[in-house]
Amino acid sequence: MTAKRLRVFALLAISMVFLLAWAFPIIWSVLNSLKTDSDVLAYPPKLVFAPTLDAYRDVLFGSGSILPNLLSSAIISVGTTIVTMLMAVPAAYALARLRFRGKKFAGFYVLATQMLPPVGIIIPYFLVLRNIGWIDTYQGIILIYLSFSLPFAIWLLVSYFEDIPFEMEEAAYLDGASRLKTLWRIIIPQVRGGIAVTVVFVFLNAWNEFLFAVVLSGNTVRPVTVAMFNFVSVEQTLWAKLAAVSVLAMLPVVVLGVVAQKHIVKGLTVGAVKGGGRR
């Protein structure tokens, strides 16, 4: 009995260590964002301190406010999500339900585009966008974000479309409904849940993107992932403010992630699960 209790205790200890390891850097950033700079820099690190919202007040409303950057991130993410969904829903429906020549190839093409390394295509993006004057514009960044959001959204949606029974469409056709009407009235309402999950993931990926943003953004369009660098310069690091900005950048994705918790494994493995046999 004691051996078993010891085992249970050991397992509990190991799991606590891992839970703490994953949660701690995030908790620590939140704590640091509520400190003054000197409290952040204190040695040994302070767990108990007088909390203050000064850092948040400064980064939001002080000089060099990051409000425009949060707005930039929001516009880019919402814009990318809307454009992506408008294109991905019809495409996914066609790939999942319709018969046409080259369907297999079309599915493979979508998967293959997902494997392109971003560093590989950032150079052409930069050259072309610079030529047409789209550097530092929302339309430029949103267009480029389609390169990773579209394949992902199409494949995730295909998996939801494939779950709907065919009888529903057939019944609608027999009633004389057109294809478009059937898609809009019968099919789309069936995959509402799948569309919501896809929206969450597309938004999340767009919000988190960094490489394209760092090359293609400028003074007008600068998402928070890039603007964060303003707080760590060679001369000095603004510790508490950096913590506050990090927390603000994490907040939306953490909330969305926890809300979409049940669907996260499916969202993370899309493509590999569905298209596994085809690749």
Binding site: L86, M87, A88, P90, A91, Y93, A94, L95, L98, R99, F100, R101, K103, A106, Y109, V110, T113, L116, G120, I121, I123, P124, Y125, L127, V128, L143, I144, L146, S147, L150, P151, I154, R179, L180
Partner: peptide, 27 residues
């Protein structure tokens, strides 16, 4: 059905070609 499929796929595939295949060739 084929025509309907082509119409549904066209926007996404044009966007994908413009943002992945074309840049690859250009690279």
């Amino acid at each position: 059905e084929r025509r309907f499929a082509a119409a549904l796929l066209a926007p996404a595939f044009l966007a994908l070609m413009a943002t992945t295949t074309f840049p690859l060739l250009f690279l």
